[in-house]
């Protein structure tokens, strides 16, 4: 039995949006300390790796390791039915062939409160904003809906079943790597650079020197260059640009893939780029304290 409830279901919606253009099918691997996804695109040029730690869920139970094979487009379609404020619970039996997804609206907690306090709350002196006052408001809503609690629960809880599939996933063994360059910058700024550079060409060079990080593109239309300098003392954490460099690195990449990666921008204010000479770049979006989505992209190399 696997069961996990994420209060901020939006994270799951955004995660699937962030990978569904890159991979069609993948496994959600569930263990007692995390759920993870690792999948390559069809051409094996890029890889996406997701990790959500069990501690980031408000309920998590996984009796034994499970691999749940899913079609990303189909899961995306179902997750579109969840509101941005909904909590999402995932459930799967050990030998089942479907994944149950339960979406609960943000009023769900208050409905639970109603059940708990209903009798005592009527007519009592409750300070403004207290749970008992909320009960009165919910009571009013019940009356206008001409219903009872059960009706509201039906309206506020949606249950979907996604068919699962057997997927032979090719797992890449990615060694722990000390990268020569680590760049942390605002994810929105990275997204804009990638979007703008795509107007000019297909290949982006990323060059990190003492001067800063230079993003450059050359195309038939002309050339574009953007220089980002370290700005470790910006007022807001999310505006900071931090560059750690052991040695200068310059690599080139296909913009098409980098553009796919920026679909994860909504997951957090910060993106981290890790680079070393002649190895894949890692583009990481931390997801609060819950986990991360990382993309690996093989470089283009002059032969």
């Amino acid at each position: 039995m696997f069961e996990a409830r994420l209060t901020s279901g939006k994270i799951l919606k955004q995660l699937i949006e962030a990978l569904k253009d890159l991979v069609q099918e993948a496994n959600i691997d569930c263990s007692d300390d995390e759920i993870s996804i690792q999948a390559m695109d069809n051409s094996h040029v890029s890889l996406v790796a997701v990790s959500l730690r069990s501690g980031g869920f408000d309920h998590f139970r996984c009796d034994r390791p499970l691999s749940l094979g899913f079609n990303a487009t189909n899961m995306g379609k179902i997750l579109k039915c969840a509101g941005n404020e909904d909590a999402i619970t995932l459930k799967a039996e050990d030998d089942g062939d479907s994944l149950s997804m339960v979406f609960e609206g943000p009023n769900q907690d208050r409905i639970a409160d109603f059940g708990e306090f209903a009798r005592g709350a009527r007519g009592s002196d409750s300070p403004p904003g207290s749970r008992r006052e909320k009960c009165w408001k919910i009571d009013f809503n019940f009356a206008t809906m001409r219903g009872v609690g059960v009706l509201v629960v039906i309206f506020d809880r949606k249950i979907y079943e996604l068919k699962l599939m057997d997927i032979d996933s090719e797992q890449l063994g990615i060694p722990d790597t000390d990268y020569k360059v680590t760049i942390q910058m605002p994810s929105g700024e990275f997204q804009r650079i990638i979007r703008d550079m795509q107007v000019l060409g297909d290949t982006l060079s990323i060059s990190c020197t003492k001067e800063g990080v230079k993003f450059g593109v050359q195309g038939d239309l002309g050339t574009g260059n953007v220089l980002i300098r370290q700005n470790a003392h910006a007022e807001k954490d999310e505006d900071r640009v931090m560059i750690e460099m052991e040695e200068p690195v310059e690599l080139t990449f296909a913009l098409r893939y980098l553009n796919f990666f920026t679909k994860a921008t909504n997951l957090g204010p910060t993106v981290i780029l890790n680079m070393s000479p002649d190895v894949p770049i890692v583009v990481e979006y931390p997801i609060g304290e819950t986990g991360h989505i990382k993309y690996y992209l093989a470089p283009k190399i002059d032969e």
Binding site: V45, G173, P175, P280, A298, K300
Partner: peptide, 14 residues
């Protein structure tokens, strides 16, 4: 133009 490599050049399949 530089050549696009795949990840299989850098990492082993498990």
């Amino acid at each position: 133009d530089p050549r696009q490599f795949t990840l299989l050049k850098f990492y082993e399949l498990n």
